[in-house]
């Protein structure tokens, strides 16, 4: 199933889709794959696989810690693609979440080709604007890949429209102004942003940044088409005593969140 089909199915079931993030290579390539599979088994509909990068300026301390560890362990782009392949085999859409430079360095066309042949669904690019995507968009389209860009509460209506236009799969709506990390409250800004975006696009709108439990997921699911969870999954892994326990904890969290997106 591709990403759009997942969102259609969720809509048909009158619920939001659940999107779960982990960086590749943490605690190891195999350990990361196991955890992602546990998340899929527990109800994650779309997987985001982070490409560990040395300068993750959109990420808070939790994701930074995991990404640092993954890089120290030698994780590189080929391991990310291997992780994509393993998750894609489950039939769940797997998108890579990457800062732009690693893709640029790998070669935009080569990355699109290798991601597609690994079975990847597409990529989320938090520091690439559609304005600068003259290479990425044609390459992604040529390989039938989703392109997900971000909108933020500070985005003008004009920029929301321009960004949504370039998105395929879904539009990533940042819930608050800030970096990744769990928050007690997921701001009202998200609802306003989604409402503004609704007026200009048919593409599904998924909200991320700060969501950590089923109740928050339910709240977001009441107005958005998808709920994105990252740091909370990573925290499960960071706090676990063993990789197996981390995967179990991530699976348990996924089950709570999956129930949440059905409680809208």
């Amino acid at each position: 199933m591709n990403t759009s089909a997942v969102f259609e199915k969720a809509r048909a079931e009158n619920r939001a889709a659940l999107i779960g993030y982990l960086p590749a290579g943490y605690p190891s390539v195999a350990g990361g794959i196991d955890a992602l599979k546990a998340m899929v088994d527990a109800g994650v509909d779309v997987v985001e696989i982070g490409l560990p990068y040395s300068d993750p300026l959109m990420d808070g301390p939790v994701i930074q810690a995991a990404v640092d560890a993954a890089l120290r362990a030698g994780t590189d782009t080929t391991h990310v693609l291997r992780t994509v392949e393993a998750v894609a085999e489950t039939g769940t859409p797997a998108l890579v979440m990457s800062y732009w430079n690693p893709i640029d360095r790998y070669g935009t066309e080569r990355f699109a080709r290798d991601l597609a042949s690994a079975g990847g669904a597409g990529a989320i690019t938090p520091d690439l604007l559609p304005d600068d995507s003259d290479e990425w968009l044609p390459a992604a389209r040529a390989h039938d890949l989703d392109t997900v860009f971000l909108i933020a509460p500070s985005s003008t209506d004009e920029r929301i429209a321009l960004t949504a236009e370039a998105c395929r799969g879904f539009v990533y709506a940042a819930s608050t102004m800030g970096v990744t990390g769990t928050r007690d409250q997921v701001g009202d800004a998200a609802a306003g942003l989604v409402a503004r975006a609704r007026t200009v696009t048919q593409t599904p709108l998924a909200v991320g940044l700060g969501v950590s439990n089923g109740d928050q997921a339910a709240q977001i699911a009441s107005f958005a088409d998808g709920v994105i969870v990252g740091s909370a999954f990573v925290r499960c892994m960071l706090e676990a005593d063993s990789p197996a326990e981390g995967a179990r904890a991530a699976g348990k969290l996924a089950a709570d969140l999956a129930a949440g997106v059905r409680r809208r």
Binding site: L150, A152, S154
Partner: peptide
């Protein structure tokens, strides 16, 4: 040059 930053910074 250009701008390779999160969309959240564009308004600023």
């Amino acid at each position: 040059g250009g701008r390779y930053v999160p969309e959240a910074l564009i308004a600023a």
